[in-house]
Amino acid sequence: MTAVEPTNATKVRVGDLSVFYGEKQALFGVDLDVPANQVTALIGPSGCGKSTFLRCVNRMNDVIDGCRVTGSILLDGVDVNDRTLDVVQLRARVGMVFQKPNPFPKSVWENVAYGPRIHGIASSHAELDRIVISSLDRAGLLKEVQDRLHEPGTSLSGGQQQRLCIARAIAVSPEVILMDEPCSALDPIATATIEGLIDELREKFTIVIVTHNMQQAARVSQRTAFFHLGEIVEEGETGKIFTNPTDQRTQDYITGRFG
């Protein structure tokens, strides 16, 4: 467990967040501070709203019909639902990695170049290539795919695909990376690699990770929030949550009594 760095500023501040899918309410007035350059893990039983919470931060819920969000999500003090903040711009700053690896049916290189290209970040092909290579490198994938850059991304193994998706996300230079159970579709070895990667990435990015796996939360995160029935039951330093939770429900969940 890495020592907590209390000097970190708050990157994302969520206040009184409620989400409705049509008539059904999925989140009930959630408050959470996400500190910069740390890994914040969201845990809790399925259907407790942690993925919904995650998707609010970069407004991926916009694509769902009938979804309504109230409350505030401040990214560096600016509400992400503010009209002046553009959703495209927001998602460039807040990247996302999904549960199932979803590389585009293009080459490895094209996959990573996709984001910088649409955002017009690189001014030349050489610069784009530099971004692609360094992103792959940072995602720990470069050595494995160096000779296969122009083969389809879908030809990689599951773990490699997920790291490709991470490389794809960091190529855009986001400030925050949201990960929605990034290892749930992977085997233990691939999972270990990705966990190591997450720990390294924290140096440059703020990471929020949803996970089902409590060992994983304990291994990679500095802070943990426990979700239950659309509310945050308990939130704090990971070490404290796992060793000395204050709420009975948290206690029950992490000791495996339900979930």
């Binding site: 991926m60 694509v63 998602r91 460039a92 990695v97 999904f98 199932k100 585009f104 984001g115 649409i118």
Partner: peptide, 25 residues
Amino acid sequence: SALREGSYGLGATKSETIRRVVLPA
């Protein structure tokens, strides 16, 4: 839809997603 989401998650607009991800796929 995972491909569409992947593209939106990177900050692509709808038309960019369609032209660069959906139609090629």
